[in-house]
Amino acid sequence: MWKWLHPYASPEKAYQLSTTLFPWFAVLGFSLTLIGTIWGLMFAPTDYQQGDSYRIIFIHVPAASMSMSVYVGMAIASFIGMVWQLKLADWSAAAMAPVGAVMTFIALITGSFWGKPMWGAWWVWDARLTSELILLFLYLGVIALYASFEDKVVAARAAGILAIVGVINIPIIKYSVDWWNSLHQGSTIKITEKSAITNDMLYPLLMNIFGFGLLIGAIVIMRFKAEIIARSGMRPWVKTMALEGENK
């Protein structure tokens, strides 16, 4: 496997691979999200308890699950970068952090707009909400640490340590609704048993989860490419690209 992977450890090859992969992620992610959102807003049945306010679920759950998945991805990348001194892994972690932060922000805001009509409060200091807020601060910490050092090898190490330590927060978020008495409802989608949701609502929700995932993949690819360029300014292929871009 290492023999096969090795050529992609070169920034130029990784850049080219990203360029090849990007349209697939972008087109699939965009279409899935579009279909899932329209389906969820217009065609999914009204909830018998929450009325039409529940339609926020079609963006709230995808954003929240992506906020956690991206964090795990970022921590794994940081770990690989630290153990095997792979710069590309560090750069991909740096590309993921802002995207994850935006997803966390969306999860919190949409949750707030869902909580107000259903719970009667914009915010409660509940286990699920508080741990998700901590996730946002972890992301902001990682972004700030990475930006704080001129030497990006040091920056990636500092940000990486925070990212890896912060992983402890992920199971806390995930199981907060089971471990503590929470105002937040339990998981709707279950892998091992039947989901607590009708298929008419489940399908658009799943479409949006995959759609968000692919869309985020596309955004991370764009940021990853930009990061490769920024870190490889002294390489001839980047110099050529930069000067060609100027002359256009």
């Binding site: 926020i56 954003a63 869309l215």
Partner: peptide
């Protein structure tokens, strides 16, 4: 909710899509 979600994703996409060009210009 939908406005803020797609608004912030839109801003994120715009910033991410123009980042590479800005970096190249800098170089």
């Amino acid at each position: 909710s939908y406005g803020i979600t797609f608004g912030s994703i839109g801003i994120l996409i715009y910033l991410s899509a123009t980042q590479e060009k800005r970096n190249l210009k800098h170089i």
